[in-house]
């Protein structure tokens, strides 16, 4: 069960509306490496996690990603406030505007709506954790690209915070992978799947070595 806290994880205070920036920052809401995909990936993968540490990690990072979704949405909201039809046309925000006005809709920078096809839940903890590590790096690259394009310091400050969180999550998932492998047969991590095969893990390792 989840509880909502009426605060952002890190403050978002953007003084100048700028729909040009919103057009590509939206990818971190509903794009292939965005925060919604991240949250759904981890929260759905939890059920195949065989150890308490991994269940905790996926729960806690999946929950934090929901908070990041809210921060990206706050950026988009603040970048698209008080726009005139002229500003909307001049900025190229018109294609989004005609479908959603200035409402927040999860889509990629190229306008593709969010899809669960952006993530996998494979039911195999090594596979899932390796995907999670790659996902954090892909999100980090996306934030690096956003920083190459965005000049507003109010926006850059928040994007830099989110970029750092990707690096921390990557580190934690790496440790989660290590914990998982330490529970498996050190001569062959792939001998069995601890999320599916019976007696796969600590006992298995003792018997097989």
């Amino acid at each position: 069960m989840w509880m909502y806290e009426k605060k952002l994880q890190y403050p978002v205070n953007i003084k100048n509306p700028n729909p040009k920036l919103a057009k590509f920052i939206i990818s971190q809401l509903g794009g292939p490496d965005g925060e919604l995909a991240a949250s759904m990936r981890y929260l759905n993968q939890r059920y195949a996690a065989p150890y308490g540490e991994i269940k905790g990690l996926l729960t806690d990072i999946g929950t934090e990603e929901l908070g990041h979704m809210e921060m990206i949405s706050a950026i988009l909201y603040q970048l698209t406030r008080n726009l005139t039809p002229e500003q909307i046309k001049a900025s190229g925000f018109d294609a989004y505007f005609v479908d959603h006005t200035t409402g927040i809709y999860p889509a990629s920078a190229s306008g593709v709506p969010f899809s669960a096809a952006y993530f996998q839940s494979k039911g195999d903890p090594i596979t899932d954790l390796v995907e999670d590590m790659a996902a954090e790096q892909k999100a980090r690259s996306t934030y690096d690209n956003i920083l190459r394009l965005a000049d507003d310091p109010d926006v850059r400050d928040v994007i830099k915070f989110l970029r750092e969180r990707e690096i921390v999550h990557f580190q934690r998932f790496g440790e989660g992978l290590r914990i998982t492998q330490d529970n498996l047969n050190s001569r062959n991590f792939y001998a069995c799947n601890p999320a599916f095969d019976k007696n796969c893990g600590r006992n298995c390792r003792r018997r097989m070595s």
Binding site: M1, R46, Y47, G52, E53, K55, G56, L57, T59
Partner: peptide, 9 residues
């Protein structure tokens, strides 16, 4: 103790 099992599911 946060990561102790069992989890709700």
């Amino acid at each position: 103790t946060w990561t102790n099992e069992p989890w709700p599911w």
